[in-house]
Design a binder for these strands. Structure first.
Length: 357
DNA sequence: TCTGGGGTCCTAGGACCC
DNA sequence: TCTGGGGTCCTAGGACCC
């Protein structure tokens, strides 16, 4: 195959809700909210809402009980990881089967596809048709000359459409939009940019990268300036992903106070984290314990330990960290992260949101 | 009845070394 | 008595993404 190299960003439309509708067709067209164990009286948040539910102002990250209040008629379903993973794998297999495609998976429901073609729109439509035929799921496709432009383009294609963003039309389309619309700029960074007199993408694109260094540091400053222009890497990298670490978090339905309960919780957390680590046969080189004291004060402590894959050793280290928990103070959440030793050649992997692009 | 759970990377500042 | 300058390693915390 010959042609110009293009980056396609493929993103499934309301993925989780769509998967739920597939196995329960009677839910089609209804406001669907997926989150937690599907019980709006529990502490949990929304994972996904269908378009019908979003019309009521429900979005992911919102507390489930608030969402339920906003949409009294909503169908509220529990999160079913296995079902979404299976659907995701079918989608990714379909993408990999496309002629000339290099596939870089970004998450359950999205991936970059690198391809050389004279007609990226035609290719995108073939991808959409193939995914639909194989999985009955609709997707939107962004086309770009960089990864960032392809990723941003997808938003203009939704639902089920195709949109192209290149150096040629980037500023026309994005220039007057707030910096928050960029991939990698959230509420905090956009507020800090505004403090520097930069509110729009065009203003960020025109900024001098060095001017951003005092505020954001030597890497992030220039990185944001580049992001404003939509510039960056254009190579889709299908190198298999090597996880840097694994973590588990638990929010307690009732705050923990009893130190014995806290100890048990840390022990259980450690066991869960180790399941993931051991499944990969990796060694642990660091542990971090996260504690959220009710209501919202979150602290972290820990890290570096001598490299080991010994269960008891790791458990002992985790319990050492647990000893630093303030006694008698109600705890709402506990999290444990294990940092893993990296194979030498995998240290420099691609990453969706930072550096390298 | 406010705030999930899984990730990644960057930065600031202290400790320590020569 | 005063106190360089470069470097590395580490922790805690911040920010963002799906």
């Amino acid at each position: 195959m010959s042609g110009i190299p293009w980056v396609l960003h493929v993103d499934l439309d309301q993925f989780i809700a769509a998967v739920e509708v597939l196995r329960r067709p009677e839910l089609a067209g209804k406001p669907i909210i997926v989150g937690g164990r599907g019980d709006p009286t529990e502490r949990a948040v929304v994972s996904t809402a269908s378009y019908e539910a979003r019309a009521f102002g429900v979005g992911s990250g919102m507390p489930l009980r608030i969402a339920a209040r906003k949409v009294p008629d909503a169908v509220i379903l529990p999160v079913d990881h296995e079902a979404y993973l299976a659907a995701s794998e079918a989608v990714m297999a379909t993408l990999r089967a496309q002629p000339g495609a290099t596939v870089q998976v970004l998450g359950w429901d999205e991936a970059f596809v690198g391809v050389e073609t004279e007609d990226p729109e035609a290719y995108a439509h073939r991808v959409q048709a193939a995914v639909l035929a194989r999985t009955e799921l609709h997707c939107s496709v962004g086309i770009g000359d960089t990864l960032v432009r392809a990723k941003v383009a997808t938003g203009f294609g939704k639902p089920a459409g195709v949109f192209r963003l290149t150096a040629g039309n980037w500023l026309d389309v994005m220039g007057s939009r707030p910096t928050k619309d960029l991939w990698g700029v959230g509420a905090r960074v956009s507020a800090r940019l505004a403090k520097l007199g930069i509110s729009t993408v065009a203003e960020l694109a025109a900024s001098n990268p060095q001017d951003l260094v005092p505020e954001f540091g030597p890497k992030m400053g220039p990185w944001y300036a580049q992001l404003g222009r939509g510039d960056g890497a254009s190579v889709v990298d299908d190198t298999p992903w090597v996880a840097r670490g694994h973590s588990r978090e638990t929010t307690f339905q009732h705050d923990l106070i009893d130190p014995v309960q806290v100890e048990d919780a840390v022990r259980e957390l450690t066991a869960h984290v180790l399941e993931d680590v051991e499944a990969e046969g990796r060694a642990v080189i660091g542990l971090t314990l996260k504690v959220r004291y009710a209501p919202f004060l979150t602290t972290t402590q820990g890290k570096k330990i001598p490299e080991t894959s010994d269960r008891n050793e790791i458990l002992a280290r985790a319990m050492d960290l647990a000893a630093g928990i303030e006694a008698g103070r109600p705890i709402r959440l506990l999290g444990l992260r294990a940092e893993m030793a990296m194979p030498d050649d995998a240290r420099k992997g691609h990453t969706p949101t930072r550096g390298g692009w």
